[in-house]
Nucleic acid binder design. Structure first.
Length: 212
DNA sequence: TGCCAGGCCCTCTTTAGGGCCTT
């Protein structure tokens, strides 16, 4: 059968004016890392001008100022370029429900669509790294001793750290299940499984998959 | 004027409440 591999995808992260596109919030930066066989092979990063000012909390939280955004390309132009970068790849984000709703909202504004599926490193980490003190991206990067040099809350850095976290999750799943090939669908199954027995549900998935 | 995110997940649950994550 054909495998859709969990180590071939685009890791994406948005910085935004707030928490909800339904309340008018917009993306102000996008960062992305393309993984092939679990290795970063290409990156995408761009500030984008949403056409309105961001508040001081966002300036402090991200380090992205109104002055920086004044010189940036408009959202439509950046999102068009990102769609070209993304191609037909699948996607990953830390707390994917957040980044997916901004991706969907920004693409809807320019009448564009993407074909990839989302995976979520936050949900997966809650199962696989259940002994972590919490599941914030920064905590998990420290908890797994992942090499870091940069600033959290900037889109490309967060995407790069999420990519490293994902590779660490894939390594752990390979070890715990004693398998080599990991489908994206297996990771999605794990992310939706109950915390207590995700291994059992993963093995059921693998048994079913092998029977096809 | 008054509203102000939402999906996931646990538990003192399911006729609900609240913490965790993302900006």
């Amino acid at each position: 059968m054909t495998h859709i591999l969990a180590d071939d995808l685009v890791v994406v992260d948005f910085e935004t004016t707030g928490l909800s596109p339904d309340n008018g919030d917009r993306a102000i930066e996008i960062g992305a890392v393309r993984l092939r066989n679990g290795q970063p092979v290409e990156t995408f990063q761009a500030l984008m001008n949403p056409g309105r000012r961001v508040n001081s909390f966002i300036e402090q939280y991200t380090g992205i100022t109104n002055q920086m955004l004044a010189d940036a390309a408009p959202n439509a132009e950046v999102m068009e370029a990102f769609l070209q970068f993304l191609g037909s790849d699948n996607l990953l984000a830390h707390n994917a429900s957040f980044d997916k709703k901004f991706l969907d909202a920004e693409f809807l504004r320019i009448d564009r669509q993407y074909s990839g599926q989302f995976a979520c490193s936050l949900l997966t980490s809650r199962r696989v790294f259940d002994d972590a003190p919490n599941h914030k991206l920064g905590t998990l990067v420290s908890f797994k001793n992942l090499h870091q040099s940069g600033n959290f809350h900037r889109a490309l850095f967060d995407a790069q750290m999420t990519a490293k976290l994902w590779v660490s999750l894939l390594h752990e799943v390979r070890q715990q299940l004693a398998i080599d090939v990991i489908d994206l669908a297996l990771m999605q199954t794990i992310s939706k499984a109950s915390r207590r027995d995700w291994q059992l549900q993963a093995r059921k998935f693998l048994t079913y998959e092998n029977a096809l």
